[in-house]
Design a protein around this nucleic acid. Structure first.
Length: 494
RNA sequence: GGGCCGUUAGCUCAGCUGGUAGAGCAGCAGACUCUUAAUCUGCGGGUCGAAGGUUCGAUCCCUUCACGGCUCACCA
């Protein structure tokens, strides 16, 4: 792989020769007077400007060199004129400083004949030498796999990548601020759990050596956050990194961030009102406008978001009235009558609630672009949610659907310990029958509930999806700095 | 997990019906004092993802494998 013509070897040779001349090519620090963005706003004629950054471009014209520096704030052109320094220094820059190296430069701001604001360099210093060449200056790094595996290159080469991650940070901050301002306290709950609960999902399994027990990575923070409420906290939230051992595709990653909050004495209706205020505030802060552009669509958050029950949506899209099909078999018959294909759904294994959910996902959800609330979920899909007082087959629950994605899932929490036990027992039975995603019986959580819990409404949001929505991305890997990828072993054998 | 597609120089990409590979950028040597993907001359750089198979001959056809992308299913 390496020979004398290989760029990497050439650069290593350069380092050797730099070191032999008594210069350390890896400095420990650097002072500057401006970052590059601020330097780019200085008046021509400003003297003694000290800058540093990574060299991104170098154009040599014999006795004049144009180059481009990049730092976190931006880019600025620099120019070296052979008249402005000892010839040896000029030659050194020409021969020994490569694209990708970090340099310090000192000089005066001026405007080139072509009008570009530029630093005229009188003095410079090599701060750190790179040995691998950067990707090509015009196309940069394009391939999603390379960009994900070598995110640092993606960040260097594609300014929109850096902007996207800065936007992610801002969104998290705005979410956090809003919750803080509304009296919520940020808490931290365990990632390693003996019984992964709070969602219907397959967990990652690991092992604790000294306790000699299997542990699981959390699939949701829900039951721990509710323990906090039982313990007297009234409003808590957590940005919870969660892990689900399921298939990967553009809208699912193994490790994702779930924001959950819990508020004592609220029901799901209170929470719907809050949600609308909350999300509108975030979008306004981050985006400036309540109408966002997403791919070829416009998504409008500005109006009052409509709410639909499962029943209404399914009547609208299929003509089937859930109230007229009390049993799963009745519903199945109606589905068949209308030639609606639920391909690959194993209708024998799933219950009525799940069948309704599948039907909704097939016929209604793909058409739900603008924000809307979905309410009255089948109770057997919501083992931790409160049963509706008027209709015991549905839960006091809502989802916010945007762009066919379930962005928010929230409900009035079930706080009746006897009923909670029964519901979890039923889940445990389903689990025994082979439903890997049925919820786990968590005795400790029920015991907590038996000591008494106030009325609670809980709320959860898939942060990565929300960010993808606000950054116009279709693949969640674009909004996670270092998404999980299968290790690439080919490079390790060299 | 299934289906479809992809993997060629450091990067971005060509490569015809099978005759063992090209360009641009980057690099090296040289010219050049205003470039904006600078230009000009010359040069070097490849296990064509991997392993088998068919063939006189494979980047190309076949099989298997690896990695990825899209998609279906599960899910947020």
């Amino acid at each position: 792989m390496s020979n004398q013509h290989d760029e990497r070897s050439i650069r290593i040779e350069k380092i050797k020769s730099i070191k032999e001349s008594g210069i350390n090519p890896y400095k420990d620090r650097c002072d500057t007077t401006h970052n590059l963005e601020k330097a780019g706003k200085l008046e021509p004629g400003t003297k003694d400007v000290e800058l540093c950054g990574r060299l991104m471009l170098k154009r040599v014209f014999g006795k004049l060199i144009f180059a481009s520096l990049k730092d976190f704030s931006g880019r600025l052109q620099i120019a070296l004129n052979i008249k402005d320094m000892e010839q040896e220094r000029f030659k050194f820059f020409q021969k020994m400083i490569d694209i990708g190296d970090f340099v310090y430069v000192k000089g005066e701001i001026f405007r080139t004949e072509k009008g570009e604001l530029t630093l005229r360099v009188f003095d410079y210093k090599l701060l750190s030498k790179a040995i691998n060449p950067l990707p090509e200056k015009f196309h940069g790094l394009i391939d999603l796999e390379s960009r994900s595996r070598q995110r640092y290159l993606d960040l260097i080469m594609n300014t929109e990548t850096q902007e996207r991650f800065i936007k992610r940070i801002k969104i998290l901050k705005v979410l956090r601020n809003f919750l803080d301002e509304n009296g919520f306290l940020e808490v931290e709950t365990p990632v390693l759990q003996a019984k992964p609960s709070g969602a219907m999902a397959k967990p990652f399994k690991t092992h604790h050596n000294s306790l000699d027990i299997d542990l699981f990575l959390r699939i949701a923070p829900e039951t721990y956050l509710k323990r906090c409420i039982a313990g007297g906290f009234e409003r808590v939230y957590e940005f919870a990194r969660c892990f689900r051992n399921e298939g990967m595709d553009p809208s699912h990653i193994q490790e994702f961030t779930l924001l959950e909050f819990y508020c004592a004495y609220w029901n799901y209706r209170d929470n719907m009102l809050f949600t609308q205020k909350f999300i509108k505030h975030i979008i306004k802060e981050v985006n400036g406008s309540l109408e966002i552009e997403y791919k070829d669509k416009k998504i409008d958050f500005s109006s009052d978001w409509p709410e639909y029950t499962f029943r209404e949506l399914i009547i609208e899209h299929t003509g089937i009235d859930l109230e007229c099909c009390e049993s799963k078999d009745d519903l199945l018959e109606e589905i068949k009558k209308r030639n609606i294909e639920l391909e690959e759904v194993d209708v024998d294994k799933i219950g009525r609630g799940n069948l309704i959910d599948q039907l909704y996902k097939k016929v209604a959800r793909p058409k739900m672009i603008n924000p809307q609330f979905l309410i009255q979920h089948p109770i057997d899909l919501s083992p931790l949610a409160r049963k509706n007082d008027d209709n015991p087959s549905v839960a006091d629950r809502f989802q916010l659907v945007v762009n066919s994605w379930e962005i928010v899932n929230a409900y009035s929490e079930l706080i009746d310990p006897v009923e909670q036990r029964e519901r979890l027992v039923r889940q445990a039975e389903a689990r025994k029958k082979g439903d890997e995603e049925a919820m786990i019986m968590e005795e400790d959580f029920i015991q907590c509930m038996e000591y008494g819990m106030p009325p609670i409404s809980g709320w959860g949001m898939g942060i990565d999806r929300f960010i993808a929505l606000l950054t116009n991305q279709e693949n969640l890997r674009e909004v996670v700095l270092f998404p999980l990828m299968r290790p690439d072993n080919s490079a390790e054998n060299t």
